[in-house]
Simulated scan of single mutants.
Amino acid sequence: MQSSNTSSESVARTLPSVTYQTVAAALAVVAAVVLPQIFHVVGAAVGAGPMLGQTLLPMHLPVLLVGLLAGPFAGVATGALAPVVSFALTGMPMAALVPFMVIELAAYGLFAGLLRGVRMPAAVPSVLGWLIRLVGAQVAGRLVDVVAIVVAVSLLGNTTMTVASVWTAVVAGLPGLVLQWVAVPAIMFAVDRRR
C-alpha cells in the first residue's frame, strides 16, 4: 500500500504539459457551462426549478476536478472563464453574481491546483488524501468569496450580496458538497489507479 501511495503522490506533484492543461481547462469550461443547464432542465422536469442547480453546485465540480487533475493554472482559468462564458451563452448566473462567481470559482480552481501536490502521510489512503485536498480547496474558496463580498459591501457599497449570503449558499449547497466529497475523491482515486 505504501508504494502505490508514494507513486501516486509523485505523479500528483508534477504538473502536466501546457497542452494538457489547456485542453483540460477548455473541456472543464464546457462541462461547467453544460452541467448547470442539464440540472436546470432536470429541475424543471421534476418540479424543483433552478433550486436543483443551487443545491447540487454543478459548476463547482468541473472547476475543482480540473484543478486537482491539471493544476492551478487550469483551475484558475476554468474558474474565471466558466461563469463568464455561461452568462454570455445562457444568461446564467445573474449578471450581479458573475463577478462573485468568477472570484469564488477561480479561487476553488487555484487552491485545488495548489493542493494537488500536497504530500500526504503514507498511512493516509489515497481516497482520503484527495478528500482532504478537496475540502481544503472548498474552505479556501469560500474564504476568498467572503473577503470579496466584504470588500464589495464595505468599500464599494454593493447591496446585491451580503456576507450572510455565503452561509445561506453553504447551507443550500450541502447536498452538492456531499456529492463533491463522494465523486471527486472517487474520480481522483480512479485516475491514480490508471496512472
Rank of each mutant, 00 (worst) to 15 (best):
A44M: 08
L35C: 05
F39I: 00
G49C: 02
V42H: 09
L35P: 04
V46S: 01
V23W: 04
A24H: 01
A28N: 13
G47W: 06
V33R: 01
A28T: 10
P36T: 06
Q37W: 03
L35N: 01
A28H: 07
V34D: 05
H40Y: 14
G47S: 08
V34C: 07
A25K: 03
V34K: 15
M51E: 12
A26L: 12
T22F: 09
A31L: 15
A32C: 10
A48E: 08
V46M: 07
A25V: 02
A45S: 10
A25M: 08
I38D: 02
Y20E: 03
Q21I: 00
Y20Q: 06
G47Y: 08
V41I: 09
Y20V: 02
A32R: 01
V30H: 05
A48V: 10
G47N: 04
L27A: 13
G49Y: 10
V23A: 12
M51Q: 11
A44T: 14
F39W: 15
A25R: 04
V42L: 12
V46I: 15
V23K: 03
F39N: 02
P50T: 15
H40S: 05
V29R: 00
G49L: 07
V33N: 01
V41M: 13
H40W: 10
L27E: 00
V46W: 02
V29S: 02
T22S: 13
V34M: 07
A44R: 11
A48L: 13
A31Y: 14
L35I: 13
V29T: 07
A26H: 07
F39Y: 15
A26F: 10
L35D: 02
L35W: 11
V23D: 02
L35V: 13
A24F: 02
H40T: 07
T22I: 11
